[in-house]
């Protein structure tokens, strides 16, 4: 009986090893482009209805957290169905790896937001920059399983995050610090995935 379980473990470990050397194709370019559009729309909403975000931080956070949740939900559902279709034999391993790569960043982003709101509300202007820097780390850690140029997307988010810190104060809460960073960034990610989809067409 133990031999049978050991054999199953061996098969799982072969699968994991295969997954670790396979380019992940679960992220759909169209979906990621759509999340970029979401970011641009959220920036538009903020620009129209929230001229002074520094004094209405809860509304500011509501706009961007709603956008993040909607984007994550759309990406998650699409990633699940696409991975099942494209990586049929390795789908569980590929999904697990994709989630493991990005989850620490998402968790860190959430915890940083809670801690800043609870303990250092006067420094909330730093949140957009921190979100972008943490997001860039998530992109960098996922680069190993994505097309190589994806490093440019990670660099973009790092640069925009640092620019937010450089802007400082209420300027960092301007709708376009988030709108441009995520709007352009997600379109860049989508373009990289789109133009590198052909060469990995035969991957499992």
């Amino acid at each position: 009986m133990n031999d049978l379980y050991k054999a199953l473990d061996d098969i799982s470990s072969i699968r994991r090893q295969m997954a670790s050397t396979t380019v992940f194709r679960g992220y759909g370019p169209a979906t990621l482009a759509a999340t970029g559009v979401f970011a641009a729309l959220a920036a538009g909403v903020q620009a129209i209805w929230l001229p002074d975000p520094g004094n209405h931080i809860s509304i500011y956070l509501s706009i961007w957290i709603t956008t993040a949740v909607a984007s994550a939900a759309l990406t998650g559902v699409q990633m699940y169905t696409r991975t099942r279709r494209i990586h049929s034999g390795l789908s569980n391993e590929m999904l697990r790896m994709a989630v493991v790569q990005f989850l620490p960043s998402a968790g860190a982003g959430l915890l940083v937001t809670i801690v800043f709101l609870r303990y250092v509300p006067f420094a909330v202007w730093m949140l957009p920059g921190l979100w972008q820097v943490i997001f860039s780390l998530g992109v960098f850690s996922s680069c190993r399983f994505l097309p190589k140029p994806m490093i440019a997307a990670g660099a973009w988010y790092l640069l925009t995050g640092l620019s937010c810190f450089a802007a400082g104060g209420s300027r960092a809460l301007s709708p376009w610090t988030m709108g441009i960073a995520y709007g352009v960034g997600q379109l860049l990610v989508a373009a990289i995935l789109f133009f590198h989809a052909e060469e990995n067409l035969d991957e499992i």
């Binding site: 009986m1 049978l4 054999a7 199953l8 098969i11 295969m18 049929s88 034999g89 035969d202 499992i204």
Partner: peptide, 25 residues
């Protein structure tokens, strides 16, 4: 790439064989 695909299909079947054997045992 077709080799990888066939190998994965083989692996899935082999896994099923072992699962069936474990269930029967």
């Amino acid at each position: 790439p077709p080799g990888r695909k066939r190998y994965l299909e083989y692996l899935s079947t082999l896994e099923q064989v072992i699962r069936d054997a474990a269930k029967e045992t």
